[in-house]
């Protein structure tokens, strides 16, 4: 029996992950509700009816980041509690395929959350129209999501088999995500500026892409050590 192809293993793992979520709907509705609630909180906390520029960008991204933390904590829950790790480790499949599948799963969650959270944000708080910011925003979202997904997949695996995983997950991932926040918030701010929309600081996006790449490599190099027993 030969080693199965990585691409087919990744597809199988991803399919199982998505099926699990779509069957139980354990995470997505919570993330949607959380982000809308967070916007309401910001409205009252800041006492502002509409936001633009830096403030708008910060509120949106902090909300997305915290929503991501919710799902990073649960990313490996079914594997840890129902023996999925052992089942995977007993197969000749490449270890890295689990990491790739988890990154893709997180990307799926983030995209699904943003599908609701971004329009909700535009409706509830954003002062300039979303339309003019959208093309640029999609690019920033993609790069930001990749960073969150890579770090989330690594830190989730680091925290899941510890006794205080609910606390360790956020404590480990938030400092690592600050550079991501810094880049995406900085890149989004000009998009949300009613005066001169459109100019994204490219330097920030390149930096972010490099950060994503570096942590992708680190996650790939270290993931195996987290799976062993």
């Amino acid at each position: 029996m030969s080693t199965p192809r990585t691409s087919s293993v990744v597809r199988a793992l991803l399919e199982a992950q998505l099926r699990l979520e779509l069957r139980t709907f354990e995470s997505l509705p919570a993330m949607w509700l959380f982000s809308v609630t967070a916007f309401v909180l910001f409205h009252f906390g800041l006492n502002e009816d509409s936001l633009s520029g830096n403030l708008a960008s910060g509120v949106l991204w902090v909300t997305l980041l915290l929503a991501a933390i919710l799902v990073i904590n649960r990313l490996y829950l079914a594997d840890a509690e129902q023996g999925g790790f052992d089942g995977f480790l007993l197969s000749p499949a490449d270890r890295g395929s689990l990491l790739i599948a988890k990154v893709l799963t997180l990307l799926f969650y983030l995209a699904a959350v943003e599908l609701v959270a971004v329009p909700a944000f535009a409706l509830l708080l954003l002062e300039p129209s979303l339309g003019q910011a959208l093309p640029g925003l999609l690019g920033v979202l993609a790069l930001g999501d990749l960073g969150i997904a890579v770090i989330g997949a690594l830190v989730g695996a680091l925290a899941i088999r510890t006794q205080s995983r609910d606390l360790l997950g956020p404590m480990l991932s938030l400092p690592l995500l600050v550079p991501v926040l810094l880049c995406v918030a900085g890149a989004t701010a000009p998009l949300f500026d009613p005066a001169h929309a459109g100019a994204i600081p490219l330097r920030l996006l390149v930096t972010l892409a490099l950060y994503d790449a570096v942590f992708g490599l680190i996650a790939f190099a270290l993931f195996d050590f987290l799976l062993e027993d």
Binding site: L154, P175, L176, V178, P179, L182, C183, G186, A189, P201, R203, L204, T207, Y211, V214, F215, I218, L222
Partner: peptide, 17 residues
């Protein structure tokens, strides 16, 4: 991971707007 974060983080914060 954290050891790699140290220099990268310094670089990125410096580049921030």
């Amino acid at each position: 991971t954290a050891g790699a974060f140290v220099p990268i983080n310094f670089l990125i914060v410096r580049l921030a707007p």
